[in-house]
Design a binder for these strands. Sequence first.
DNA 1: AGAAGAAACGACCGGTCGTGCTATTGTGCG
DNA 2: CGCACAATAGCACGACCGGTCGTTTCTTCT
Lengths: 205, 205
Amino acid sequence: MSKGEETRREIVDRALALASEVGLESLSLGNLAANVKLSKSGLFAHFRSKEALQLEVLRRAVDLFIEEVVIPALAKPRGEPRVVALFEGYLAWISGRERKGTCFFIALSQEYDDRPGPVRDLLVKSQRDWHHTLARAARLAVEQGHFRADLDAEQFAYELVGIGMAFQQLYKLLDHPKAEQRARTAFRALVARSRRADAEAPRRH
Amino acid sequence: MSKGEETRREIVDRALALASEVGLESLSLGNLAANVKLSKSGLFAHFRSKEALQLEVLRRAVDLFIEEVVIPALAKPRGEPRVVALFEGYLAWISGRERKGTCFFIALSQEYDDRPGPVRDLLVKSQRDWHHTLARAARLAVEQGHFRADLDAEQFAYELVGIGMAFQQLYKLLDHPKAEQRARTAFRALVARSRRADAEAPRRH
DNA sequence: AGAAGAAACGACCGGTCGTGCTATTGTGCG
DNA sequence: CGCACAATAGCACGACCGGTCGTTTCTTCT
């Protein structure tokens, strides 16, 4: 990797961390430059506009999410185990990573729901993909006979996302000690009513 | 009401509308002043700092929410009807009001989850209140015999909030035609499994 | 080693930000 | 009517914004 690509990557990494705190729009080039110990103009030269930087940061976040959440789940067997892995990965993504509890995508959803442009377009695409990934996993669980045949997979994805979003608010903003427990309880209930009526009783944890 | 109070109110109203679009932090005094046709300094004189204005705006949003969502629900009889009214009011609040589909509080939750200060403090209080209001309504439904005796009311509130947040994303960012249907389906399922086992079968809509 | 090009720098642009300070206008009461 | 004071405007400030430019320093390749 050339020198340029290397620092460029450092910039994007640091920008992702900063943007997780203040938002992608409020992230300023000057502040970012100081953080990576570059001059503002030196940094700017890597991207030809702030928007290009923002897009790069979002792309990086998507890559990280796929790497940390989606790929590991795909290693699990189809059906309920994979669904569980997606949920657990999602939870870990929201609560963990660096610093505590800011899911980049949920934050951006608010920041860009009213702000047209390529950043929003990419965000929309990534969130649609996430819904589709969840729905596909649920459909596979139906095919495997784990979930009811008449399960609405998209509805399943919707409710799972809701559990995650409420978790983030409870965990980060409201600093609730039982946030994780609440999320898991909600997920267990969601899975329980998605199972085949004739499936074996829910396992205890 | 004196002249000062009147324009002050107009300012806050307009500020709430603008902040719903760009966020409370990115709302600028200059832009706001132009919107209410005042000079920047003339507007500024009403509040002695931007933070004071932000607090005022948030207070106004809380008042509106109570007035439009909570109070009407309290007019309904205790138990399931009130719970349903709270949910429907919440949904209407998120999707409706002026412009389409930005819940001020959900947006602020993201904006301030990392930004300490009095605005965040007030936001936290308001969101805790909302959870408590929902939980209290659920507990009353237990007392009325509509919901199971062993229902976890806080868990119920958590899941209802999650349904609302996912609804907002689907409705506003992803512009999904079935967003409202998804939310209602999720809510019906939540209510159904909260009911007493010996209660009559769920009504069809 | 040396040349070509990539990478980083510092100064600077026009604008906007929040916030003071002072003057002017408008309102409402005796 | 006229006075006191509230309300608004005008102007200036220092800081920071995204972005441009010409120049210098460092890589990279022959």
